[in-house]
Design a protein around this nucleic acid. Structure first.
Lengths: 132, 132
DNA sequence: ATAATAATAGTAACAATTACTATGATTAGA
DNA sequence: TCTAATCATAGTAATTGTTACTATTATTAT
């Protein structure tokens, strides 16, 4: 129940996530917000990321690198993981594609499907030539 | 290069993964294999899971719980994550659905898409009624 | 059998995350 | 605007999942 109380640190964390199209880890968020709040604590970053994610104001995405990443863009969309530079990029499928997929899944599955998330793998445009 | 040498522990780990349709974490693998090898080391489990995954004999899947899970079934297939009991279940889409999806993604994306993996969320058949 | 070397158990180290606590900031009410 | 209540913070310690290290053991080629 605990009433939410304003904090500049939380504001700054949320603002950073809303203005970047990267998908930073907690540690990356930490080092950016540190520029504005030089002695912010890493614990504060984690606590607020969890809080904001629970409120649905940001999204937590699990990457193949098994370090949680965060996304300020909460509209349903998908991600691309570059196996070369290991960045996560946005990739937007149409709503039709997504619901079509869920439909197809529902037909072969016994439970109740509420949503889905697809991660695509490959080389991003920057890495196409480079990398093995 | 290091030539691979047989070990009963590795055999047992692989065998367990091939005969279960669960998607166990390293720790779960550990406690099962421990029944056959009471003083197997957790490090041995991690080392062999990594080795087998690198060899492509098992698959590593990242779950929303951010603990790596392992899968002895390596044919391309997808997973369902039950938000109630937090189990991971298999869910098979047809090859057509999968390549259709990759196709659609390729059209809106600049890089080079090699594969994709979809995770579906919802309540499994056991949890449909229960759980909020 | 023996020698070479990979794999193991056990333990220590590490990295990501969470918990704890005294202090500081925000907010509602007099 | 002061005050009291309480939430949030910084700093640190603790936890958890995972990897690295090392002396010993198991496997394998000769």
């Amino acid at each position: 129940m605990a009433a939410l109380k304003y904090s500049r640190q939380r504001e700054s964390i949320k603002n950073y996530l809303l203005t970047t199209r990267e998908h930073p880890s907690a540690d990356t968020v930490y080092s950016h917000v540190k520029e504005e709040f030089p002695n912010i604590s890493l614990g504060t970053v984690y606590r607020n990321l969890k809080l904001l994610a629970d409120l649905g104001e940001i999204a937590k995405i699990s990457s193949p690198d098994s370090v949680d990443r965060f996304d300020g863009f909460v509209q349903p969309h998908n991600h691309f993981f570059c196996t070369c530079c290991r960045r996560i990029l946005d990739l937007d499928l149409s709503m039709e594609e997504i619901s079509r997929l869920n439909q197809a899944a529902a037909e072969t599955f016994d439970g109740q499907i509420e949503s889905s998330n697809t991660i695509f793998y490959g080389k991003c445009s920057d890495c196409k030539g480079t990398c093995s």
